Computed example of a mutant assay.
Amino acid sequence: MPRTALIVIDMLNTYAHEDAEHLVPSVRDALPGITTLLKHARASDSPVIYVNDNFGEWRSHHGEILRAALDGRHADLVEPVAPDENSLFVVKARHSAFFETPLAYLLGQLEARQLVLCGQVTEQCVLYSALDAHIRHFDVVVAADAVAHIDADLAQAALRMMRSNMSADIRTVDDITFDAPR
């Protein structure tokens, strides 16, 4: 069985953008699934990697991104999923978690071959990250009840595309397991 890593996409968010009013209700729905995945991954000592936008702040690092999100309009959506001291962090500037980031190298160092994707936004960053993981020959699992969307129809289409075009395994959180501790 390949080593599994949990990839948490863009959950450190200030929600100070034009799509926030459409996104926030979906994030509230996905939050229990994301927190469950975090709990299970951490309990199994599986790598937990946060991949987050830098929001155009080129001097930002994970502490600044987290602080801005916790100071934002919806800290209640950030606090339950905040990174712990063992979490890894990759800053991205574009939609894909892989585009011009060290994520592929990090996953190689961790010997991870299977990725569980959760976070936001299903029809954007999750979709593009799944595609880039697929073309890098990772086994991709998407937690359908732990991803948030702006547009429900596009999100459902994105999940179908990930399953059909990228061989992603679309599962519910209850059907996802992580490695036993090494």
Rank of each mutant, 00 (worst) to 15 (best):
V24K: 02
E100G: 00
V91P: 05
V142T: 04
A168W: 06
A97C: 07
L154F: 15
E85M: 07
I65H: 05
I65S: 06
D174Y: 02
R160D: 14
V141E: 10
G108W: 03
S87R: 06
A144D: 11
D174Q: 12
G63P: 04
D139Q: 12
E57Y: 14
S44D: 12
H17S: 09
A144R: 15
L154P: 02
L127S: 04
V8R: 02
Q156I: 06
A20N: 05
S96G: 05
E64P: 00
I176T: 02
A180S: 13
L159P: 10
N86F: 11
L103G: 06
V8D: 04
T122M: 13
D153N: 11
H149L: 12
N86M: 05
G33C: 10
L106S: 06
D132A: 00
F89P: 01
V140I: 10
M166A: 04
P80I: 01
A5W: 09
H22C: 08
P25W: 12
V121H: 02
D175V: 00
H61I: 01
L159E: 12
S167M: 09
V140T: 07
L117D: 00
G33R: 04
I176P: 02
A93N: 15
I150Y: 03
K92C: 10
A30W: 06
V116G: 01
H74K: 08
F99Y: 15
A133S: 14
D53S: 11
Y128G: 00
L115P: 05
Q120V: 06
D10A: 00
A112D: 11
V90W: 00
S164H: 15
L117M: 01
G72V: 03
F99L: 13
C125V: 02
R59A: 07
D10S: 02
I34Y: 11
L117R: 01
A152W: 02
A75W: 08
A130T: 14
L103A: 04
S96V: 03
S164G: 15
I135C: 12
M11A: 04
F55L: 10
V91D: 09
L12G: 02
L6F: 04
H17D: 14
D84N: 15
H17G: 07
A69S: 13
I176D: 03
D179R: 02
Q109A: 11
A93W: 13
Y15W: 09
A148E: 12
E100C: 09
L103E: 10
D151K: 04
M1L: 13
I34E: 11
P80A: 01
I135Y: 14
L117S: 01
R182K: 10
F99I: 04
G119M: 10
A168R: 01
Q124C: 08
Q114G: 08
D76N: 01
Q124W: 10
G72W: 07
H22V: 01
E18V: 14
P47L: 10
D45Q: 15
G72R: 04
A133W: 11
R182A: 14
H134G: 00
V91H: 07
G119L: 08
D174C: 05
Y128S: 10
D169W: 11
V78C: 01
Q156H: 13
V116I: 08
D169N: 15
E111C: 05
G108T: 04
P47G: 09
V173L: 03
E123V: 00
D45C: 12
A41K: 08
E57D: 15
L12V: 06
R59T: 11
P102H: 01
Q156M: 13
